[in-house]
Amino acid sequence: MLENDQQKKYDIPVSFRYDPFFKNRETFLDYSCLNISETIDHEPFYYDMLVLQSQQEKPWESPNKYVPLLFEKWKQRVPKINNAFAKRKINAETNELMIHCISLFIISLYWSNNSSVKSLNIEDANILKNKIKPINVEERLLFIIKNYTKFHSFSQLKQLFIEHEKAFYKKAAIDKLKNR
């Protein structure tokens, strides 16, 4: 069923049309027939873009359920990227994988703060308003996006994920204690 001519398409919102995420694309496909894990594999910003078009499903309203899924997807992809950099065999597939992983990080950053991603323009995205976030996340993320083909960006992304995951689970533990 996926990616055929009959499948419904939506316009990518202007606020999401930033390189390297959506170069040469103006639409995204309807993946409503898939579960959230499969949908994120195909189109990481699917739910965030669709909510701007009145989509009902809002995974950021249940961060304890969905953010760990994003962390797991990241961890599944790390060995492949690590291997490509170790062998110095960076190709289009590796670059796409890096873009996907950067997308996973951005989504995890917003969803963990009960918010959807509203823009991929990092400088205008109000990342600093998020309570759960790594230190200097905006500057670090800008560097990673501009240099996603470089090993140092991959290293920085790994560090951001580690810091963010710790902050996320710390907040979850505190919330759990408060609700006792």
Rank of each mutant, 00 (worst) to 15 (best):
S112L: 05
P63K: 04
W74L: 03
Q76V: 05
K73L: 15
Y31L: 15
D48E: 08
K80M: 11
W74S: 03
S119M: 04
I99Y: 02
H100W: 10
L109I: 04
N91Q: 08
I90M: 04
P44K: 01
K118L: 15
K89T: 04
H100S: 12
M98Q: 09
I81R: 09
F71T: 02
L52D: 02
K75Q: 13
C101I: 03
D41H: 08
L29W: 13
F85R: 09
I81T: 14
E93I: 13
K75P: 01
F85V: 05
S37L: 06
F71W: 01
N24I: 04
Y47V: 10
S112V: 04
I36M: 05
A84W: 09
S116L: 11
I90W: 03
F45C: 06
R25C: 12
Y66G: 05
I90K: 02
C33H: 15
L50A: 09
T39G: 00
N114C: 12
L104R: 00
L104Q: 00
Y31G: 13
N95Q: 09
N24L: 11
D30C: 13
I40Q: 01
N114I: 06
S62N: 10
L97K: 10
L70E: 01
Q76T: 07
E57C: 07
F22D: 14
D48F: 05
L29M: 15
E72C: 02
L104P: 02
F22E: 14
P79F: 10
H42D: 09
S62R: 05
V67Q: 02
S103F: 08
K65F: 06
I81G: 11
C101A: 11
S54C: 11
F71V: 05
F45K: 01
